[in-house]
């Protein structure tokens, strides 16, 4: 094929391209000026808006992201004015939040009556066991992670964070700095290998982990149950038993759990008489 033929072929397309470009240009210019015309009132209204939207003014479904879609009190969302963009802190994204901690959340109702059901509880306990090799093992991470940063973990796990139907539980122990030291993803982030039969064929393991009876002893019906598990690494009771948590206590408003619920000295390594401390000088207090 000759070169000129080739060019001829493209000619009709060229005309179409001019038309499309003209349309786009017109739209862009008019859009820009329409944006400039918008008054600052919308922006002022946005700025005075409280961080937590007043209850009842938003539709339920948009509660969690209500601050992303802003409009008049009931009207449709309005685009911000371009003229104001440069002046505002982070442009139109000033109050967009990608930090999950800062999303508006339902306040948990501490006083909601709950009727603990054995089945629901069992389901939670089962789900919990799936992530642990034995009672007391650090749970594995059921989602992909940032391989090199621990800071990312706390953006959700700093508080009990509800994300749709999932709950990112608050860290129940004091926050160590290096999360991945103990918690590893249950599936790797490393790229999978196609046809990798060698890895898949690793023999399984016969280890049977200890599962605690997971039921506190009550001295009598209605008495406060003892804590059936170790409190080692589980010092923050509300992480699992708080108002949002799956194993919710019937009385989440009470703060001092150990006042009524007794931990176990045996499980918590406090049975000093049968297991004395090392005889070496305690070195930390030199």
């Amino acid at each position: 094929m000759k070169e000129s033929d080739e060019l001829n072929q493209y000619r009709p397309h060229k005309k179409a391209t001019y038309v499309v470009m003209a349309v786009i240009l017109t739209a862009a210019v008019s859009g820009y000026f329409m944006g400039l015309q918008q008054t600052g009132s919308t922006i002022r209204e946005r700025q005075s808006d409280s961080v937590v939207p007043s209850q009842g003014t938003r539709r339920d479904s948009s509660k969690d992201n209500s601050r992303m879609i802003k409009g008049g009190s009931n009207g449709p969302p309005t685009a911000p004015s371009y003229s104001e963009m440069a002046a505002s802190d982070r442009g139109p994204n000033a109050d967009w939040e990608n930090d999950l901690r800062k999303l508006t959340r339902k306040k948990p109702n501490l006083f909601k009556q709950v009727e603990p059901s054995a089945q629901a509880r069992q389901a939670v306990v089962e789900a919990r066991r799936k992530l642990r090799a034995f009672d007391g093992a650090p749970p594995v991470i059921p989602h992909p992670i940032n391989q090199t940063s621990s800071a990312a973990c706390l953006s959700c796990h700093n508080e009990n964070t509800e994300i749709k139907d999932r709950l990112a539980q608050k860290v129940p122990h004091k926050t160590y700095q290096s999360c991945t030291q103990c918690h590893v993803p249950t599936t790797t982030d490393a790229p999978p290998m196609a046809g990798d039969t060698m890895t898949a064929n690793w023999p399984t393991n016969r280890f049977v982990g200890w599962t605690n009876q997971l039921e506190g002893k009550q001295a009598y019906s209605g008495g406060p149950p003892t804590i059936p598990h170790t409190t080692l690494m589980r010092k923050n009771c509300l992480s699992c038993h708080g108002a949002k948590a799956r194993l919710r206590t019937t009385h989440p408003w009470r703060q001092s759990c150990l006042q009524c619920h007794a931990p176990s000295a045996g499980l918590d390594q406090h049975r000093f008489l049968s297991e004395p401390f090392p005889v070496s000088p305690k070195t930390r207090s030199q």
Binding site: H183, V208, G209, L232, K282
Partner: peptide, 21 residues
């Protein structure tokens, strides 16, 4: 059937790593 970090141990004060657990 189970492993815990030993709180009485001066080396690790109750903490382990994922291999240790």
């Amino acid at each position: 059937v189970a492993i815990q970090g030993d709180e009485k141990a001066d080396v690790n004060n109750g903490l382990l790593c994922v291999k240790g657990y």
